[in-house]
Computed example of a mutant assay.
Amino acid sequence: MSTATVAHFPSGSATRPAQSTPLVRFAGVQKTYDGVHLVVRGLDLDIRRGEFLTLLGPSGSGKTTTLMMLAGFESPTAGEIQLDGKPITRTPPHKRNFGMVFQNYALFPHMTVGDNVAYPLSVRRVPSAERAKRVAQALDMVRLGGMAGRYPGQLSGGQQQRVALARALVFNPQLVLMDEPLGALDKQLREHMQIELKELHRQLGVSFVYVTHDQGEALTMSDRVAVFNDGDIQQLAPVTEMYETPVNRFVAGFIGDSTDFKGTVRATEGGRCGIVLADGRVVTGLNVNGAVVGDSVQASIRPERIVLHRDLAAAGHPNRLQARVIDLIYFGDHLRALCEPGTGQPEAVVKLPLGGQPPQPGDEVVLELPSELTRIYL
């Protein structure tokens, strides 16, 4: 998105204030629908001013319920939600000054694009002249200038999503909430919109809270990611930290690709441990969760960090496992070798750069797992 297309509303600012008080705070928030099963369990979460925070997790993990409680469409069963240090748990949605973008766009089909975008200003009784000016700014901002007179049914899915975004931003919200807003778009358009959303966030400096189950979206756009599972946040961290240093095996498997080996701890030393696989081979790595001797564990490593050796003589060194290539898959910018690493072990995936002569199905190879990049999880 060109910076020239981004409008700055009168009370908005692209400068993110360095303030210690979070914009939003969840304190001990719980949610149950049946009085028995907790959909959200004792949530403590601070949302910073001006950040792009993504709530990521599988279906039923609690991420959407968390967003709906923040929006005011659901009420917590216990705990408190604060905005600028003041409780908003009982504040109705229309008084929270939050913009909302839904997956299905939620546009009024009988109203023009301009009227759809103007709707939040109309209910706030903004004078017509100011309303028209801000609608034009918002449409220019999402590159829909000149389309105010059209109806939603005359627009593509991507254009409708831009209208929904303009409507969410036109009244200068201090927080924009997005519930899987790109889920209905095709892959190419979705990836294009991810870049545009990130650029728009950078230009405006408004806090974005984004819900998705798509790890690629989370890594592409976010400042921080909160990974949910079973009603709890498993890890909250910047995207690079989340990818490089997952805190448990769920996060390691949910964020990015992971190649795993099962074994039993046979020794620990400092922050490392050695594990023995079912066939007696030994792998060492970082002892992430404090495993002790005898624990059943999983050694995980990113597929692009594995070094594949064609010379079987390399197998005589530590953290090197002989394996057999069973398939080779072309991904456009890289190859993936699927390998059978031994009895009782899941399939190992190795990412290989293009070029040279890759191994072929049936070839015996050696997989080197650098110990400093191998993480051992309970």
Results as ranks from 00 to 15, higher is better:
residue 14 A to P: 02
residue 14 A to N: 13
residue 14 A to R: 15
residue 15 T to G: 04
residue 15 T to P: 00
residue 16 R to F: 08
residue 16 R to V: 09
residue 17 P to Y: 10
residue 17 P to G: 09
residue 17 P to W: 09
residue 18 A to T: 07
residue 18 A to H: 13
residue 18 A to R: 14
residue 18 A to Q: 13
residue 19 Q to S: 14
residue 19 Q to Y: 03
residue 20 S to F: 07
residue 20 S to C: 10
residue 20 S to D: 15
residue 20 S to Y: 09
residue 21 T to I: 12
residue 21 T to V: 13
residue 21 T to C: 08
residue 21 T to F: 10
residue 21 T to L: 15
residue 22 P to D: 09
residue 22 P to T: 04
residue 23 L to G: 05
residue 23 L to Q: 12
residue 23 L to T: 06
residue 24 V to L: 11
residue 24 V to S: 00
residue 24 V to R: 03
residue 25 R to T: 13
residue 25 R to K: 14
residue 25 R to E: 11
residue 26 F to L: 08
residue 26 F to E: 03
residue 26 F to R: 09
residue 26 F to N: 03
residue 26 F to H: 09
residue 26 F to M: 12
residue 27 A to P: 00
residue 27 A to L: 01
residue 28 G to Y: 12
residue 28 G to A: 12
residue 28 G to Q: 14
residue 29 V to L: 05
residue 29 V to I: 02
residue 29 V to M: 09
residue 29 V to P: 00
residue 30 Q to H: 11
residue 30 Q to N: 09
residue 31 K to V: 00
residue 31 K to A: 04
residue 31 K to R: 12
residue 32 T to N: 09
residue 32 T to P: 01
residue 32 T to W: 10
residue 32 T to K: 05
residue 32 T to V: 08
residue 33 Y to C: 06
residue 33 Y to I: 04
residue 34 D to R: 10
residue 34 D to N: 13
residue 35 G to T: 05
residue 35 G to M: 07
residue 35 G to N: 05
residue 35 G to F: 08
residue 36 V to E: 15
residue 36 V to G: 07
residue 36 V to T: 14
residue 36 V to Y: 09
residue 37 H to Y: 14
residue 37 H to L: 10
residue 37 H to E: 13
residue 37 H to Q: 13
residue 37 H to W: 11
residue 38 L to W: 11
residue 38 L to E: 07
residue 38 L to T: 00
residue 38 L to P: 00
residue 38 L to G: 00
residue 38 L to Q: 08
residue 39 V to G: 04
residue 39 V to S: 11
residue 39 V to P: 01
residue 39 V to T: 11
residue 39 V to C: 06
residue 39 V to H: 02
residue 39 V to Q: 03
residue 39 V to R: 04
residue 40 V to S: 05
residue 40 V to T: 08
residue 40 V to G: 06
residue 40 V to P: 03
residue 40 V to K: 02
residue 40 V to A: 05
residue 41 R to V: 02
residue 41 R to F: 03
residue 41 R to D: 13
residue 41 R to G: 01
residue 42 G to D: 15
residue 42 G to V: 07
residue 43 L to E: 01
residue 43 L to P: 00
residue 43 L to T: 02
residue 44 D to Q: 10
residue 44 D to A: 03
residue 44 D to C: 03
residue 44 D to K: 08
residue 45 L to I: 02
residue 45 L to G: 08
residue 45 L to A: 06
residue 45 L to C: 06
residue 46 D to Y: 01
residue 46 D to G: 01
residue 46 D to W: 03
